[in-house]
């Protein structure tokens, strides 16, 4: 193949893409849709349930303060610290609950695997940027809040290329 034809072919294949749909996801307005509500774990079968590994969600009435999540995190990132909580729970005699420092957390989900009481899950929330390091530390009260996420944009594949609808 001659040089000229090669260059013309290369340009042509680029020009063809002018007619193809835009692939860009306009992020703050559109958000990607994920499988399920986030990564969960079923201790009775020992197998997880697929989902995004985002910010944690803590069920206060299930947490017994057994520290298994904190022990699992000790070798990974030391992100989980057990802190005193003022309120009294029927389950939680020690009155301690995990507090997660997202400046250290690596979102591996081993703490979720370690929890045998269905107390710790992961949610689809990933918007955690902050101006200060202190803003990255989530107390048990903050972890209890289920994040409001509106994620509906999905990848669509048609004859005219892939786009986000």
């Amino acid at each position: 193949m001659g040089t000229a034809t090669g260059i013309i072919r290369a340009l042509n294949s680029g020009i063809k893409h002018l007619a193809i749909k835009r692939f860009t996801l306009r992020y703050p307005e559109e958000k990607l849709k994920f499988v399920g509500d986030g990564y969960q774990f079923d201790p009775s079968t020992g197998v997880g349930i697929a989902g995004l590994k985002g910010r944690h969600l803590l069920f206060h009435d299930h947490c017994t303060g057994c520290q298994l999540c904190s022990i699992a995190c000790e070798g990974v990132a030391e992100a989980i610290a057990m802190v005193k909580v003022p309120e009294e729970h029927k389950h939680n005699k020690k009155a301690i609950m995990p507090q997660i420092d997202y400046g250290k957390c690596v979102f591996c989900g081993l703490c979720v695997d370690a929890c045998p009481f269905y107390a710790l899950y992961m949610t689809n929330d990933y918007e955690l940027s902050s101006f200060s390091k202190e803003g990255l530390i989530y107390t048990p009260a903050q972890l209890q809040v289920k994040p409001y996420v509106q994620q509906d944009s999905e990848i669509k594949i048609t004859d005219r290329g892939a786009s986000h609808g």
């Binding site: 703050p28 997202y102 979102f107 990933y126 955690l128 990255l136």
Partner: peptide, 29 residues
Amino acid sequence: PGIDGVIPVDVYVPGCPPRPETLIQGCIL
């Protein structure tokens, strides 16, 4: 243990690695 000792930081973007969305959110901040 972090870059605070080397240079001053304006915005922290957590994650390992952060999703591009989180980085964009950090840029908006």
